[in-house]
Write a protein that binds this DNA or RNA. Structure first.
Lengths: 200, 200
DNA sequence: ACCTGAACACCGTTCAAGT
DNA sequence: ACCTGAACACCGTTCAAGT
């Protein structure tokens, strides 16, 4: 031991991220720890700190992968429809379904906060922008003459709503009776918001 | 030691909840622990487990107090205006400001999940309903002829949006340029949604 | 009956020491 | 140069023992 060079720095990083995702899926957010990740890739905890600044940095890479998958899940839905309202509705439902099927990863993506008030790195912010861009296009179709700044803001307004509904819905904080379903709520929400957005 | 009876069960519970709130305000969610709460009220950790089933139960009471305060902050705003749209706008802003000023407590309220998939106790669900009731009244004013089921759902649609905007906005996940402000975004969101809600 | 203190099984993070 | 193993300062939770 104590000198192996079985894997490069980058290989260890990738292995760790993959292991973390598996642990998240199997044991949830609270089941994840640096020690478990290290054990699962056959290294000591110390090695993880040779390759990542700390656990937060590892989680950042995990969240980056989640954000990429989320983006893919949403935009795949968008291609099917030519009507922008239908596109946005099915994108919203795709967002919900991704959250339902990957609840631990989805919840880590939004609950994880860097310490102090450290800002997210630029390449991570870029990924967020890319997701919003996918939502923005159908909105531009609906209101082609409005200035870009307004569409940018509307994108965030609409997506905040979809996100909030998924978040509260999946954590049972909407007090939904059996009477109404989260899918129907999200569809109706998108409809109502878009009607207001199209009013100008 | 080992037999004091300085305080009743209920007194220790209240002291613990108050201490937890102070720690949350001073050290944030990650700074809170059962051991710190115990130390701060002058008891051993073990005593906490005589009075609460576990840490989750203590946090539930902390969250109940937060929910009460949130409700009060929101409904105080509602009384000032007679116009329902203005009421809902200022309620949304009151929600945002409470979240900004009590970020640790607000974030615990929504991030805390009971283990397994245990359901929230009835008295806690009742508090959630009470908050939604405050939002529901102005919506009923806007659409007095629509059935209650629809207004119930619209309440959740609207409030999910406000919640999502606060959540993403305060955790810097909206990728807001300096160009637009979270307050303006929330006001515009409420306007757009209500326009769609009033369309029927 | 009430409370403690120590124990158990975990954490994240660091770093001297080994090869 | 790369990795380990042990240490440090923390966790939540339990429970025999003390008064």
């Amino acid at each position: 031991m104590a000198r192996r060079s079985d894997h490069s720095r980058e290989e260890i990083q990738h292995m760790a991220v993959a292991a973390a995702i598996t642990i998240l899926n199997e044991q949830g957010v609270t089941g994840l720890s640096a020690r478990k990740v290290a054990k699962s890739i056959g290294y000591t905890v110390g090695t993880l700190y040779l390759v990542f600044k700390n656990l937060d940095e590892l989680l950042l890479y995990v969240n980056a992968a989640t954000l990429d998958e989320l983006h893919q899940a949403i935009t795949e839905e968008a291609k099917i429809h030519t009507d922008p309202t239908l596109s946005l509705k099915s994108m919203a439902l795709a967002y919900l379904h991704y959250a339902q099927q990957n609840s631990a990863r989805w919840s880590l993506l939004f609950s994880h906060q860097l310490p102090d008030g450290q800002l997210l790195p630029d390449w991570f912010e870029q990924k967020i922008i890319t997701v919003f861009d996918g939502v923005m296009k159908p909105l531009q179709q609906i209101q082609p003459d409005v200035n870009e700044q307004a569409v940018l803001q509307a994108t965030r307004e609409l997506w905040s709503g979809v996100h909030g509904a998924c978040d509260l819905g999946l954590s049972n904080k909407l007090n939904m009776g059996a009477e109404f379903e989260i899918e129907a709520l999200i569809e109706s929400f998108v409809e109502n918001y878009l009607f207001g957005f199209a009013k100008v």
